[in-house]
Design a protein around this nucleic acid. Structure first.
Length: 283
DNA sequence: ACACGCTCCTGAACGC
DNA sequence: TGCGTTCAGGAGCGTG
């Protein structure tokens, strides 16, 4: 269930494991994930040195020494399961380990994705900006290009709920269902409000609210990075003390209002997905 | 350009 | 115990 903070943490873990290492062996166990894997996928990766591991939106970018970039999206259930060298002897792929990377120090990284909503591609660095999966992405929410003037401009004229607009990766790249609910709570904005009406003061509140929610989750992920690398790659959401997400009927975080009369956190469905919010605090 | 619904797939959590 | 149903999630794609 990875959104930007989870992907960022995965990247950091992968960087610690793979940066500078040579991919000694790559095993591909099926021809496709959500899309077909590239031709000669395993062969093109084998023997390549990993130069760096980066991120764009929810995509992992693994740069290789021949100018190729391995592009990975974890979809909804994808995980990168790291097995360190001292435990890698006799490694056997688990169910749904679709691609297994072995580094020259003995580390094993398995891409496990039961639902196969994940994606991988292998592209030349020069073609990255034009790649069909990356070309339309909006700015990074933690970057300088994301500010209230930009957001107001992008939301102007849009007659869809702000919840849906923030899930649109061309508006801002990296938010998912959970952090959108959390950010709107932080900004005191109702998820039902039309996107076009989020301007001025509200946009000024929303941008920092998004940044704070993501930054806090990344910080929480950083603290669990050691576990992530050393154990089984289990990687749920870090911030399980959510303010509103998955808390229907409970008081929102720090809520002073009476649950008996307000009903607490409300759950509604927008665009077929759950949204959680506190009507007393979000307008 | 924008809005919306459908779809991919599986495991977990339910109800009977 | 076992079966069936529902739900969760990201985002590309087709249609209006």
């Amino acid at each position: 269930m990875p959104e930007l903070p989870e992907v960022e943490t995965v990247c950091r873990g992968l960087s610690a494991t793979l940066s500078g290492r040579v991919l000694a062996r790559v095993d591909q166990h099926r021809p496709d994930l959500r899309f077909p894997l590239p031709d000669n996928f395993a062969r093109r990766l084998t023997g390549r040195r990993v130069e760096s591991v980066g991120r764009r939106a929810k995509y992992i970018l693994i740069r290789l020494d021949d100018g190729q970039v391995l592009l990975i999206h974890l979809g909804m259930a994808g995980r990168m399961v790291v097995t360190p060298p001292d435990r890698a002897a006799g490694f056997a792929p688990a169910t749904h380990d679709h691609v297994v990377f072995r580094a020259d120090d003995g580390s094993v990284v398995a891409f496990n994705d039961a639902r196969r909503f994940g994606m991988m591609d292998l592209v030349a660095e020069a073609d990255l900006p034009r790649h069909r999966l990356l070309a339309g992405l909006g700015p990074e929410p933690l970057g300088n290009e994301f500010h209230d003037a930009y957001l107001s401009a992008r939301l102007a004229g849009r007659r869809t709920p702000i919840k849906a607009a923030l899930l649109d990766q061309t508006v801002v790249a990296g938010l998912g269902n959970i952090y959108v609910s959390e950010a709107l709570f932080g900004a005191g904005i109702s998820p039902r409000r039309l996107a076009a009406s989020v301007a001025g003061r509200r946009a000024e509140r929303l941008v920092p609210a998004i940044r704070e929610v993501l930054s806090a989750a990344i910080a929480a992920g950083g603290s669990s990075l050691r576990d992530y690398v050393q154990t089984d790659g289990e990687l749920g959401y870090f911030q399980h003390a959510w303010a509103v997400y998955d808390r229907a009927g409970e008081p929102c975080r720090d809520c002073r209002c009476d649950v008996e009369t307000t009903g607490g956190v409300h759950r509604i469905v927008q665009s077929g997905r759950s949204t959680f919010y506190c009507p007393a605090k979000q307008r």
